[in-house]
Computed example of a mutant assay.
Amino acid sequence: MKYKYILFYKPYHVMCQFTDNTPHNRETLKNYINIPNIYSVGRLDFDSEGLLLLTDNNRVKHRLCEPSFAHPRTYWSQVENIPSIQALRQLETGVVIQGKKTKKATAKLLMNEPQLPPRNPPIRYRKEIPTAWIELQLTEGRNRQVRKMTASVGHPTLRLVRVKIGINPSIELSLTGLAPGQWRELTDIEQKSLEKLC
């Protein structure tokens, strides 16, 4: 059986599912992807953007979503104010969210603003509060984790973009070549690397 694998650049304010069962009539994946029987591997919040993998291969979905396998995911988070080295080290060693400490992560301050398409609508800028971008790599996916982590060290997240999903040490899926709302099929090499995980 040949499985389907899709990489999608989820725009801001798009639901990470194919139907909206609320009266709000929000945009869903169905507004962008017309492929039956595929589902997202993990989720991105309504107000987050970035890389989403969709497939009809349940074994791959389980392997990437199961916390014990700890596959890495990389995020760019635009935060209020400029984080100190101490704040970054806190993010790396773990912070307590709802009574449970987060797993070790990597966190670094990006020296330049990443080259991303403008968000629509843009974040609300305040002249008296500077912003900075942090790159965070996590191996767990708790609910709204990045936002809760940065808030816990005094730097609320204003914009959040997932940019990479690690498969193995040599293969990462990334946003490269995609604009918000665009998708592509995985290459043969990417597919084979994913299926080797199972």
Rank of each mutant, 00 (worst) to 15 (best):
Q115Y: 10
Y39Q: 10
R124L: 12
E66P: 00
N58M: 11
I134H: 04
I171T: 15
I38P: 01
F18I: 08
E185M: 10
K192M: 09
L51A: 08
C16Q: 01
L51K: 03
G50W: 08
F69P: 00
P117W: 00
E185L: 10
I167D: 11
S152Y: 04
L138M: 06
S193P: 03
Q17T: 15
K30D: 11
G177D: 09
R162L: 08
F46A: 04
I38W: 13
Q145W: 00
H24L: 14
T106E: 01
V14I: 15
L178Y: 07
C198Y: 09
T93R: 09
P72A: 13
K61P: 05
E49G: 11
E80C: 11
Q182S: 08
M149Q: 05
V163K: 08
L52N: 05
R159I: 12
S170Q: 14
S40L: 03
R119S: 02
L197D: 02
E135I: 03
R144D: 13
F69Y: 15
M15K: 15
I38N: 12
D45Q: 06
P11D: 12
L29N: 01
R59P: 00
P83R: 03
T19A: 11
P23D: 13
G154L: 13
I35C: 01
E128R: 01
N57V: 04
P117G: 02
E185R: 07
I123G: 03
D47E: 15
E92L: 10
N81L: 14
P118L: 05
E140G: 02
M111E: 15
A132E: 07
F69K: 14
Q182G: 00
